[in-house]
Design a binder for these strands. Structure first.
Lengths: 229, 229
DNA sequence: GTTTTAAGTGTTAATTTCACATTTAACAAA
DNA sequence: TTTGTTAAATGTGAAATTAACACTTAAAAC
């Protein structure tokens, strides 16, 4: 027998964001140290509660916008966590989202409620509630997505070198890649524009900068192309 | 500023199940015709509301058990749908799950509240709310999962022929596969047991029955094996 | 014993992936 | 202005995987 609306229980629905960044070496996540109860002083994901008048995507955007001032952040819903006692306060479910931001370009906003800090995904502190589990799930999802969708570029500055792109994929996939094979593969995709501009910070010779060509990518997708790294 | 528990809104959380079956030819989904309001008479997924004392997985199992009497059904959380006006009744979010059941072995239970019926995924009627979207997402998820995890067997009887397995994958992936290549690939996985028993219903010669060997699969996974069809 | 029907089986070509080392551009130092 | 230094740029061949493809066999029906 299906429950009717009237007899069904209402619950609090929270939303937690795993915010990924990349610092040219390691994949990072942004965590906050809570200045409020419960679990004051502990590290956690950035989160908030869903409002009656917004979708989960809206709520995720709102929370990220509040943190960063940005509203063009890559976001994807991950999973809804529902253990009965996951939050010791009240019966609360939480839908986790993950976000990809270019941590170089984007300064984070200050907020009296918390201090935010980037952590290497391999060196993150223990988190409250089920947030560790959320992070693990997000890493796995990011790994699967990054090889089948061109979302990695969200973590890089608009212009990047091939080596940066390679290091990014190495960090996401937690593997070492061969330079020539990687470049050959990326070039074969034919979705990057090689600029006339060089990044001179890393060597005397300088290395060419590239840009993701979204229009070209979209067109190729229409023609049946599949992205695969 | 993060919302505190006290000011946060509570919402109804529904749960809808996309129940997949396979009839030797086509991938099917189980739908019900609602005998109750709202949307009485229309087709919809099987669903219910989350109770305060259960997890989403629990709720999904409860709903499926009520329908089928079974409690060993393959289940996976799909996505949480949250459009503000997705349910015209009350502000309701819905977490969609998909389930795989062997529709031959398992008789469905009767229920006064609705009539349940199997539909080819390609011939399903229009559904209420955002249920069409849920089904589409479930099909895509099933496609991705079925090639990387041995979940297809959940849709087959315990003993099956190679042709049945091939037809199943053809139905899931919506492609035609080459018989010899498919068998070679499956045999190379080395996770099936070939029985001494034949299915004589389909030909004079009869075709050998196979069984999925879960222990062997689990052991191979531990040794670093990856399933891939 | 002949026919019928679906089951069962293997090889080759094509493509993709992987491993691997030398040359080049730009600046710095002599 | 030559030489040294450093990271960037570049291609090929072997190995593995995937894709294409057609004939033989077992069992029952007649």
């Amino acid at each position: 027998m299906l429950s009717s609306y009237s007899t069904a229980d209402k619950v609090l629905l929270a939303l937690d964001c795993i915010i990924f960044g990349f610092d040219q070496h390691q994949l990072k996540i942004l965590l906050i140290q809570r200045d409020f109860e419960p679990e004051k002083g502990k590290w956690s994901l950035i989160g908030g509660f869903l409002k009656r008048t917004e979708t989960l995507d809206d709520a995720a955007k709102r929370i990220l916008n509040h943190l960063s001032g940005l509203d063009d952040i890559y976001l994807e819903q991950l999973y809804t966590f529902s253990e009965v006692d996951r939050d010791p306060g009240e019966r609360t479910l939480s839908t986790a989202y993950y976000a990809l931001i270019n941590s170089e370009d984007h300064k984070l906003l200050e907020d009296g409620d918390y201090t935010a800090k980037w952590f290497d995904i391999k060196e993150a502190p223990n988190l409250i509630f089920d947030h560790n589990e959320m992070v693990q799930k997000a890493i796995l999802r990011l790994r699967r997505r990054a090889v089948s969708k061109p979302i990695g570029f969200e973590l890089l500055p608009e212009k990047f070198t091939m080596l940066q792109l390679q290091k990014l994929y190495e960090a996401i996939l937690d593997v070492e890649l061969d330079k020539r094979n990687f470049i050959n593969k990326v070039n074969a995709l034919d979705i990057l524009v090689k600029l006339d501009e060089k990044d001179m910070t890393s060597s005397r010779k300088g290395s060419y900068l590239y840009q993701f060509d979204k229009e070209k990518y979209d067109q190729k997708i229409e023609e049946g192309f599949t992205f695969k790294i």
